[in-house]
Design a protein around this nucleic acid. Structure first.
Length: 430
RNA sequence: GGUGGGGUUCCCGAGCGGUCAAAGGGAACAGACUGUAAAUCUGUCGGCGAUGCCUUCGGAGGUUCAAAUCCUCCCCCCACCA
């Protein structure tokens, strides 16, 4: 089997690692235990979390045992690393509820059955710590001189806002997590985003000092789009893995709409397709790249939402935007259905139900755009329409007060469109 | 606790009694060009069934014909001092 370090390196997951030779040696000796922490600051993961999640998934696929640590304890403190502002303090109840939600989502990527992976919550060992005991046993191993030089605190120490004492302690808690996991589960590798370097190294040092044992760290690069934006940030906010917050259709669309330049890189990072096939994609040019985007979107959506919903999202997209047949030799490992791409329920396109009586008199078009949420206000809707960005059943309408009546409905449905890609279906009810 | 500097529309940031729904930039949205891409150019970018009306410039009062702009008190942030 290929060495997991080579897999991660090749796919673009690795920014930095400690003790490379020893780490490589350790990982080749058999199943190894590694971990990544997720702070339960929200009730759902979003696209920005995918890199560490995929890294754990690859670890497992390469025969190792990943631990996903949910920061039920550290979440109560708040990690200042790389943050320009102090984090909101969370209540214990919120943190616990979030931890449960994260667990369900992680299970999409990682197989937690029969100890093949573990999910732990650091509240288990952090919540009951005694202050004095902790300071004496753990705190004495940390040099404040060194901590304040850490890059992860730099931004905050230099900023106007400053760094509160509770946040300053975060590094100790995360280091202690590593020690606990080392003791409990023989975990010797911690991974994390590049902003976690300081915290990870602190844990490595702590384990060495207290257990005379070498443990390792790997950090991931900060992934941005070719346009320089953070992954998963859109005008509407983050792109979530929770179908309630971001529909499978919207999730699929996020990937289809990615920048050309990002396609091969994203296929490597966010799908399980083999690298040999992904490299072929680099040969594609211009509109042909859209075919690869379809595969990218399908694969990523399938991982998170399952095959059925991914197919529906794809069908909805092709019914709105049209589709081209995918050649059999493009990313052949993808399980995307290549022949029947055209048909399927086109659910996923947002829709609104409207009573027939509500429009019997006719309703001005701008009101309808406002009502469906395609425009945030009546004024915005009027502007949109006047500027020629509004379509009814795919025909441009430029009169903002054009009444919409029963005659506009085809089979009880009406398709509104704002600009090129924002669709909304209006259904007639009794 | 003292002294000084601040809090402006999604973000940054001008404005410092009328010409202010508030410059400029960013983000965003739409149009043109396209490939559901990027870049570029153009328009829009508080609300309102709208050539007018209403609500915004940390909060509450006040002065004035008129306040984001002046005064008073309060809240919050920052710097230096203690």
């Amino acid at each position: 089997m290929t060495h997991v370090l080579d897999v991660l390196d090749e796919r673009g997951f690795v920014e930095a690692k400690t003790h490379e030779a020893e780490l490589r040696e350790w990982l080749s000796q058999g199943p190894c235990t590694c971990y990544i922490g997720f702070d339960p600051t929200g009730s759902s993961l979003h696209i920005g979390h995918l890199i560490p999640v995929m890294a754990l998934a690859y670890m497992q696929r390469c025969g190792h045992r990943p631990i996903a640590l949910v920061g039920g304890g550290t979440g109560l403190v708040g990690d200042p690393s790389g943050k320009t502002e102090m984090r909101q303090m969370l209540t214990r109840e919120t943190v616990d509820a979030n931890a449960e939600a994260l667990k369900r989502q992680l299970a999409r990527f990682i197989d937690f059955s029969s100890q093949r992976a573990l999910l732990v919550n650091n509240a288990e060992w952090l919540a009951g710590l005694g202050y004095i005991a902790f300071l004496r046993d753990i705190g004495r191993h940390f040099s404040v001189n060194r901590m304040i030089r850490a890059e992860s605190y730099r931004m905050r120490l230099d900023s106007d806002e400053g760094l509160s004492f509770i946040e300053f302690n975060y590094m100790l808690l995360q280091a202690y997590d590593f020690l606990e996991l080392h003791d409990r589960h023989a975990c010797r590798l911690q991974m994390g985003g590049s902003d976690q370097w300081g915290n990870i190294v602190a844990g490595i040092d702590l384990v060495r000092k207290m257990r005379q044992q070498t443990v390792f760290g790997i950090t991931f690069p900060l992934i941005t789009t070719a346009g320089g934006a953070k992954m998963g940030k859109t005008a509407a906010g983050a792109v979530w893995l929770d179908a309630q917050r971001t529909s499978p259709y919207a999730y699929y669309q996020y990937w289809v709409n990615c920048d050309d330049a990002d396609v091969p890189r994203f296929l490597a990072l966010y799908t399980f397709l083999p690298m040999g096939e992904i490299r072929e994609v680099a040969q594609l040019r211009d509109a042909d790249l859209n075919l690869a985007k379809t595969v990218l979107a399908f694969e990523t959506t399938q991982i998170v939402h399952g095959r059925q919903l991914a197919m529906e999202a794809m069908a909805a997209a092709s019914s709105m935007f049209g589709s081209r047949r995918l050649p059999a030799d493009l990313l052949p490992s993808s399980t995307l259905p290549r022949n029947s791409a055209g048909k399927g329920a086109d659910d996923g396109v947002p829709s609104t139900d409207l009573g027939a009586d509500e429009i019997s008199e006719g309703i001005p078009l701008f009101k309808l755009f406002q009502l469906t949420g395609l425009s945030s206000s009546g004024g915005a809707a009027r502007r949109l329409i006047r500027q020629g960005g509004a379509y009814v059943n795919n025909e441009r309408v430029t009169a903002d007060d054009r009444p919409v009546t029963l005659a506009d409905f085809v089979g009880g449905e009406l398709l509104l469109r704002s600009g090129k890609k924002h669709f909304h279906r209006v259904r007639l009810t009794k």
